[in-house]
Write a protein that binds this DNA or RNA. Sequence first.
DNA 1: TACATCAGATATTAG
DNA 2: ATCTGATGTA
Length: 697
Amino acid sequence: MDFNKELNEEQLKAVTSDDGPLLILAGAGSGKTRVLTYRIAYLLKKGLSPDKILAVTFTNKAAGEMKNRLLPAVIPWIGTFHSICARILRREIEQLGFGSSFSIYDEHDKRKLIEKCLKDLDIDPKTNRPPAIAHMISMAKNELIDCESFSKEATDYKEKIAANVYRLYQERLMQNNALDFDDLLMLTVNIFELSPRTLEKYTQRFQHIFIDEYQDTNHAQYRLVSLLAQKHKNICVVGDSDQSIYRWRGADIGNILSFERDYPNCKVITLEQNYRSTTNILQAANCLIGNNSQRKAKNLWTAKDKGELLTVFEAQNEHHEAHFVARTISNYLEKGASIKDFAVFYRVNAQSRVLEEAFLKEGLSYRIIGGLKFYERAEIKDILAYLRALVNPNDSVSLERIINKPRRGIGETTVKALYRYAKEHNCTFYEALENCAEIKSLSAGAIEKLKAFKGLIDKLKEKPDARLVKIVTAVLHESGYLESLKKAADMESQNRLDNLHEFVSVVAEFESRNPDCTLALFLEEISLISDVDQLSDEEGSATLMTMHNAKGLEFEVVFVTGLEEGLFPHSRSMFEEAELEEERRLCYVSLTRAKKKLFLTSAYSRNLYGTGNYNVKSRFLAEIPENLLELAHAPTIQPNLDETEFSVGDVISHKQFGQGIITELKGEQITVQFETHGPKVLLLGYAPITLVSIERN
DNA sequence: TACATCAGATATTAG
DNA sequence: ATCTGATGTA
């Protein structure tokens, strides 16, 4: 690393700045990752020991990249907040009464448990929706509010209900020796606040702390950082308030805005030169974000050329839009472009399917980041539940999941009887299973089946030191899981078998990377994996992902799709100013991912979740100066209309524009004179129209 | 008592 | 499209 050669003046200042609090306000594409890694390298060169550093990144992938760049130094404490907290908790959580082999519950497990709590508290899930309650609990945890204080401060009816659920939910988590994602943060803070000795151990160790994407930290993370940094005050945070997009997850933009107040003697360095995008792209982004009132103005600039204009395409519907994207990429490829340089962003995962279809039709290879995640597929969750149950027998959510998978004739009534027994005897679900013979209400047959199940678990548990692959294959075979899928012999089961096969190779691969890894550590790692973590630097495909996942990435050519009111900005976030501004920041993040060329697409009509919508163009399009935009000429398409043929003179009906008469037919283009909207050119095969009457001479 | 089947509600963004 | 709850059946 040649600091003087590879860094600009401000970057160099940031890298070589003295000890003490340091705030780096880094605009999009201003080289913040580089600055962060170089600063760490600089400190190492000055003699700082690598194990005195704590570096928090937003994804594990970013952590991996940083590690690679810093080779040969090995920095043991680099990771996301969640993975670092999990690591601390494995060592310290016994202070709070949990066991160190706790399970980590994902959103799905959490929802199951909350639904169960509602049932036990006799709360109607129709009037008190589990997701809403889960959200309230999650927000409370992010604010470090425990159920006692939550209960005390609950004023309205809904809050009081949520407070009761919170209490029971927390109780159940403890019984199951399980933590949800929010607990990882909250409990770590709790330990540090309860035990000054423990805190001392870590503040002593972490002489230099680095936090990336500081604008997206929530209160719990903020508190954690404050506690850890209080001793040495060598805290370097990097972020950009214009890129804060996780308010809905508790992120508080105020954390970065008040850093200077929190650390009065801090040094502030602003990085305003963008090295990524063309002037046009950057100007578009700057103008857009200028519409936010809650922000500190800054002037992001680039030395690059103007580059091309941003291309706007207004599609008839989502298929047309997807086709445009795929076709446009094809055209680039014919001219020699490389497919890995293309990315398509969308607001909601549900948009990906149509894009996927278009890519398949066009013969383009693509990969989708996020969406239906590998580890969320039922069969994978099943095998993971087995593994979790082996590590943590208290985990009743996992036990219940597998108790009748594959079918062993243990039904709902039996499971309920076990829960009742556990409650009456104040013991765990597993202990109820152990003592199932004592349960009066169970038939001899049911008891036999339960005993057989418990025997299976115990047998699998016998080899805790075996190799991971061995344990996994033993689970798959001895549980009868594989066999039952093979017997089913339909397409879906075959698919599941393939996925399980893939899972075994994931395990094998993991094991070869971490030779003496335990099952518990393996489980922890995969529950904290993020979507972008799985994004490899693959050469042969375009990337499809949500705008949220795009944070921190860059591509030569970017398509931002679905620029329609109600979708982007999303209907759930367009009526409150703070939420709307977050949508705009999300748009800003999306635009600034592009290096050379940006396409912005929208559709007149869009089918989402099975119902049609007619949307107007997103306000974000209007916020970009017109002189930076050009309209796309639609690429040639193959009309895919077969049943109905149209002729000049026919009356057609369009859901948005109403009735109209066809005045011209030219190839796949039809011109329609609408009664109320005037003339429009629509594309046959994509236009959402139906024939009303035929008027031909 | 377990399980197949069907109708009906429900759906942002994510570690 | 996917999951839940109700209903019918062995």
